[in-house]
Amino acid sequence: MTSQAWVLLVLIFAIAVAWPKIGLWTQWRHYQAEKTRRLVEDALKHIVAWEQRGQAATPESLAGALSLSQRRTLSLIIRMEKRGLLRSDPAGFSLTSKGESWALHVVRAHRLWERYLADDAGMPMERLHQAAEIAEHQLSAEKLDKLDAHLGHPQRDPHGDPIPAADGSLKPVDAVSLSQWPTGEQARIVHIEDEPDVIFRQIIAAGLRPGVNIRILENTPERLVISDGNTEHRLAHIVAANIQVAEARHSLRPAGAIRLSELPKGEPAEVIELDAACRGFSRRRLLDLGLTPQTRIEVALDNPFGDPRAYRVRGTTIALRRQQAGQIWVKPPSTSANQQTAKEAIHA
């Protein structure tokens, strides 16, 4: 190659690196700044989470949460102090007001995004957290306000954690651990801890989630037996500790309730409620069709291929896929019919 070609090549390389705004150098700087911002935001989240539990985060806890070396954690803390985000005390850190409002913004982004993914995008519960961990760093305050309005100003994320308002105010969850709830009493699940992941998946797989009403049937040192009306769940105490409950708002699903998808053809039934897992658009849609509690419903048409089936409700025929119908709880016709025959027997 001639020397001119070399000069040209070097020149091209230099331009590619140094070009303002789109050059490699700027790109790299931008990437580094993004990475630092993420780290700072994750640190803020950790500290605010500890503060909410009434504890002060320490350099050790921070290093553990972010999986950083002690040295890098220290430099991160110094940088954050310089930017006026936190103060170090002998007992640990505390956030400045600037740090706290930034931290709450990230928390709000995380929880709103989870709510959005669960309600509008229909993402399964166990995948929400990971997706929100990425999105929380990318949402501006204006975008969040729009999202908040679009979702109808939700109060809680899908796990039951409170979503901070735009002004940063947070309404704490008033709840106790499931293990401490009196046996025999009804309760409503209000919060499920999403870590550790293994336990969270177990709870979700059992169909338990915020909004579900339960009753504790048995509380022994080995285990906890609870019922959601028609299914009994046996939980180890380590699992139950991750579920928080509060006062029930309405009564437990009656025994013998079945999912609409299991309703046999030709038997009338009555809607009890929509499952707590049915949220967002899908829930609004079913409600708008008139599937409110106490509505009479029956199967109008079976499908050649089993799915969807058509149901007769409020004088109209509506086809629902099995997955949707499975989120509608109905009283089986047999129990109401039995009660009727029982009544008639008494009258006779």
């Binding site: 995008a121 229909g122 993402m123 399964p124 658009f281 899908s282 849609r285 079913l286 069709l289 109008a300 048409l301 969807p308 058509a310 109209t316 025929t317 509506i318 086809a319 629902l320 896929r321 997955q323 949707q324």
Partner: peptide, 13 residues
């Protein structure tokens, strides 16, 4: 990619 959304289909008279 994504989950199936709500499917409600009215069968009019």
């Amino acid at each position: 990619q994504g989950e199936a959304s709500a499917f409600t289909l009215e069968l009019p008279p």
